[in-house]
């Protein structure tokens, strides 16, 4: 018998007292900064000290005038698509094996083992790939040990290296969300489909995928969004190949010091991200229940 909507005065005060610190903190650390960035993106110069500045649309115009930015944004989006697709294709069967083919205590242990790397430092994991993939590195040696002909495997500083590193970083996300979705599917549904004579691909296509799609889409969004904004992974694994939209933004803030342009570029990226989140919001909401 919850009395929704009407709280007594004291309860309102208590709720406000408990919530205010956290939400004030988020306001100062996230929401005000995003607003500040919106402001920065429409001015000519950093308004600190006695620099002259005025309101302008130049920063956004720069994005439109130079084809480089749009090309890099497109490159980043493509990278996001590739990494997301690979994560889903590799992660879904893995989640299936975990959720439906392994039983008992070992399932929980294996599941933990799969998502554990996700909670370790991503920078360090990307760095470890650099060691594995470099010419004359571990992968090179391993391939040459089993392959009779001499080949040189040097994937470092290629797009492949970036994709491998990113898939490694975000694969556990997809496995986690797909596993949770698959686990929620009652085994008897699959048994019922089999008893009705359905072949395994029919079951996958007509029963399993529709029921786990919300989890899969949630996982895909959680991969896609950070990959589009990635800059550290391309830098370490891509070398000279590794110029992406994210690295250009990074440069504006740490190398070129053109903050207003960086803010405008960030805001365009944010718009892309928000558009994706908005489109997938109904599905995400469903996935959380």
């Amino acid at each position: 018998m919850a009395e929704a909507g009407h709280l007594a005065r004291t309860d309102r005060l208590r709720a406000a007292g408990l919530l205010a610190p956290a939400y004030l903190w988020l306001t100062v650390a996230v929401f005000l900064p995003l607003s500040a960035m919106a402001f920065f993106s429409i001015i000519t110069d950093v308004p600190f000290g006695d620099t002259e500045w005025r309101v302008t649309a130049e920063n956004y115009a720069a994005f439109l005038e130079s084809p480089t930015y749009a090309r890099l944004l497109w490159k980043s989006v493509l990278l996001g698509v590739k990494v997301t697709a690979l994560c889903v294709l590799i992660g879904f069967p893995c989640a299936w094996v975990l959720a439906k083919m392994i039983r008992g205590r070992s399932r929980e242990a294996l599941f933990l083992l799969v998502i554990l790397p996700f909670w370790s430092n991503s920078l360090v994991r990307i760095f470890s790939w650099a060691i594995v993939l470099r010419g004359n590195g571990v992968l090179d040696k391993a391939v040459n040990a089993v392959w009779p002909w001499n080949v040189e495997v040097n994937l470092l500083f290629s797009e492949w290296a970036i994709v491998i590193g990113l898939v490694h970083s975000y694969l556990p996300y997809v496995i986690l969300t797909a596993y949770l979705a698959l686990q929620a599917i009652d085994d008897s549904l699959i048994e019922a489909a089999r008893s009705l004579g359905a072949k395994w691909w029919t079951i996958l296509w007509r029963v399993v995928l529709p029921l786990s799609s919300s989890g899969l889409i949630a996982g895909a969004v959680l991969v896609f969004v950070p990959v589009v904004g990635s800059f550290m992974e391309p830098r370490i694994l891509g070398g000279r190949m590794g110029t992406y939209y994210g690295t250009v933004i990074e440069d504006q803030f740490v190398a070129v010091f053109n903050w207003p342009l960086g803010a405008a570029l960030s805001f365009i990226l944010l718009a892309v991200v928000l558009a994706i989140l908005a489109v997938s919001a109904p599905v995400l909401r469903k996935a959380r229940t």
Partner: peptide, 26 residues
Amino acid sequence: LQVLLFPPIAIPWLITGTAMLIFFFG
């Protein structure tokens, strides 16, 4: 309020980080 918890997780850290840099300087 519940929905407001998601931006810090969902927005790429690159954006959040640069926004914080701008604001904290300001």
